[in-house]
Amino acid sequence: MGLLALFRKQPTSANVAKERLRIIVAQERSARGSPDYLPLLRREILEVIHRYVNVDPSAVQINLGREDGREVLELSVALPQPPPARR
């Protein structure tokens, strides 16, 4: 650190580390309270859907959120495009 430091404007690496940690720690803490059956639930739902439709594993999203003091289990499945109808 010398005179040059006075003119340096970009954030220091320590600040970058702190910001990154602040975000990831907050994210991981909020996930901590959620029940641990979610991954299993997701897998089993995926298996059932798979029996009927050929979906990509990443097409099933399960989220546990909070709305107006209630817990909301949100399930979204993106179905693949149906093949064009044959004549």
Partner: peptide
């Protein structure tokens, strides 16, 4: 290293945790 911005400080870590 904290003074030169290369290392998180005690208060940074205290705040995060």
């Amino acid at each position: 290293r904290v003074a030169s911005g290369e290392m998180m400080s005690v208060s940074d870590i205290k705040e995060i945790l």
